[in-house]
């Protein structure tokens, strides 16, 4: 009897050793962060700064490191199409690598008066690579290869429903890129 109790106690102790007893081993890892210049950059499109409708200007403002962009357009009723507003470039220097890109719509355009808002991405041979619905959040065009030394252009197409007051609105989207295409961007 005493032997049986000892065996049970030993088993419980063994179980506790497996479940509740941790053995910590520390392996040193040294992480060094060396930031680099952006290998993919924005460029103003050929029509940035050009004349827009209503006596306005097509406003395209790039961030100081060409890694952000602010665009202001002035569409009217029906379909207004802006050709080559913004460009995405993978210049050979400094990176010289291929990248995979997509567009992630973060804060979509709202309002029924805008019946459609689309960004169209074309390569230098004028092939349509993908479109992004600027009225619906989500990631579009992943993983489109932006080869080393290539530049893509972005066109914007806006459709405003006739018969409603002229609307205003904004949309925020991100150009997302990665040297790998295995998994979609979070």
């Amino acid at each position: 009897m005493r032997t049986s109790r000892a065996i049970i106690l030993l088993a419980l102790l063994t179980l506790l050793a497996l479940v509740g007893t941790a053995v910590f081993v520390y392996l040193p890892v040294n992480v060094t962060i060396n930031s680099v210049g952006p290998p993919v950059i924005f460029q103003a499109g050929s029509n940035a700064g050009g004349t827009d409708l209503g006596g306005n200007t097509i406003q395209v403002t790039l961030g100081p490191n060409s890694s952000s962009a602010t665009i202001v357009l002035h569409p009217t009723y029906q379909k207004t199409y802006y050709h080559d507003i913004l460009q995405v470039s993978n210049p050979s220097p400094p990176a010289g690598d291929n990248y995979y890109i997509g567009i992630k719509v973060v804060s979509p355009l709202t309002g029924a008066a805008f019946s459609s808002a689309v960004a169209r991405v074309y390569d230098s041979a004028n092939n349509l690579l993908f479109t992004a619905d600027l009225k619906t959040a989500g990631t579009y065009g992943w993983a489109t290869l932006l080869p080393d030394g290539q530049t893509f252009r972005i066109d914007i197409e806006i459709v405003i429903t006739e018969g409603v007051p002229l609307p205003s609105g904004s949309v925020t989207f991100e150009l997302v890129y990665s040297p790998q295409s295995v998994t979609p961007p979070p």
Binding site: I156, I160, V171
Partner: peptide, 18 residues
């Protein structure tokens, strides 16, 4: 995989049809 995100803001101020 590592991802880089470039923010872009698009503002639409519609105008009367010319």
């Amino acid at each position: 995989a590592e991802f880089s995100y470039y923010p872009t803001s698009l503002t639409l101020n519609s105008v009367s049809p010319p």
